[in-house]
Write a protein that binds this DNA or RNA. Structure first.
Lengths: 205, 205
DNA sequence: TCCCACCACTGAGCATGCAATATTGCATGC
DNA sequence: GCATGCAATATTGCATGCTCAGTGGTGGGA
């Protein structure tokens, strides 16, 4: 379906940062650029608006700029979900999940993360490994929705060496709690990990 | 906007149970019934599909029927969010929140709930009071999304006197933890409360 | 009688036209 | 020089027509 393709394209452009907050999104312009009619573009707009990525202001679509308060709120929701993911992972991780989790935390990955070369990717891989071990598809998709904002990438990219190191230790602690089957502790650590990264955003700005 | 009105109408019809799972939703039919053209109906379909309420099967829209596994997944997500709401409420509830929370748990409300007369409403009022005290708009809207499924209402309606009583006690315990400012305990109790109601669905079916 | 092929029909995907409305720029007056 | 009102323009909201895919029904042959 064209409308699906348009939606994916626009969403990627917003999250990746090609389209900036407050930038107007003009139906006809996008339609021409993507070589489709306005109809699939309109349908994509509805979905992007439901995702909270764009908003209609005075009969115009613009990329939405989240206020600091809203970013904090999103992080609080995400903290709850990452906590639940870690909890369920500690209960349910099978052999394959454990292998994946151990894999994303090996010495090689640590080097890449701490050096900053692939910090965003390594970070995502860890959180993906946890959520995957939770065996809950809905939780997975909700967490993807929460990570679907432009500001997430910026956060991890703003870490200095000290914070990268601290963040990695937290990952290790969460993984250990999961692998050793301590759901309450895993949930607590994961929640605090997200809360911690949240406070960093606001200290910096 | 017509498309907004159509969306609200259809969503309400699905959640309320006027439209049944697997029932086909025909664009032209709905357009005629609601006296609008097919365009706003199409746009509503996109949003309903994003909500997971309808699904396109072989080029036709039908009301989606969640599998038991998916219902369990949704409850696990909701457990995490209600837990977080209770945690934040324990940290942040102001005088007005406390009054509301006490109000929905007074002797009169208890009577109405236990007698079964207004069980669904009283249940929603309690959870609303908690989420309101959490002072997090995003968490509120995510929780509303989670309660937006037809099966939720059916759950509370299937409670017998014993379960109603047990459920009320859990509400009281959560409220106490919030009012006395014990976030960890409030979160734990709220999460277990949702998990508990979840297990009931599956024991019954 | 049963099975298969073909055809008509239903309904969604997309394009486009038209109307309504908000915005912008310009002219005019104070 | 600045404010105000009007006209032109930009852009969305909605309606409708066309096309194509999937479905079901019907007729003919084994």
């Amino acid at each position: 379906m064209l409308s699906e393709r348009v939606y994916q394209t626009l969403r990627a452009e917003i999250v990746h940062g090609d389209l900036w907050p407050n930038q107007p999104m003009i139906e006809a312009e996008i339609a021409e650029r993507l070589k489709v009619s306005r109809t699939p573009v309109r349908e994509s707009m509805q979905r992007l608006a439901a995702d909270g990525l764009i908003v209609s202001r005075r009969r115009r679509w613009v990329v939405y700029e989240h206020t600091p308060e809203e970013i904090q709120e999103i992080y609080e929701v995400r903290a709850a979900l990452e906590g639940q993911a870690a909890r369920l992972a500690a209960d349910r991780a099978d052999e394959e999940d454990r292998a994946v989790l151990a894999g994303v935390l090996d010495a090689d990955a640590k080097q890449r993360f701490l050096s900053g070369r692939a910090r965003v990717e390594a970070n995502e891989q860890f959180h993906d490994a946890v959520v995957r071990a939770a065996h809950n598809q809905r939780l997975t998709s909700e967490l993807i929705r929460m990570r679907l904002y432009g500001f997430n990438t910026r956060v991890v990219n703003s870490y200095d060496a000290d914070l990268l190191s601290r963040s990695w230790s937290e990952h290790e602690a969460i993984a250990t709690a999961i692998l050793e089957g301590r759901p309450d502790q895993a949930a607590d650590l994961a929640r605090r990990h997200v809360e911690h990264s949240m406070t960093i955003i606001f200290e910096r700005s």
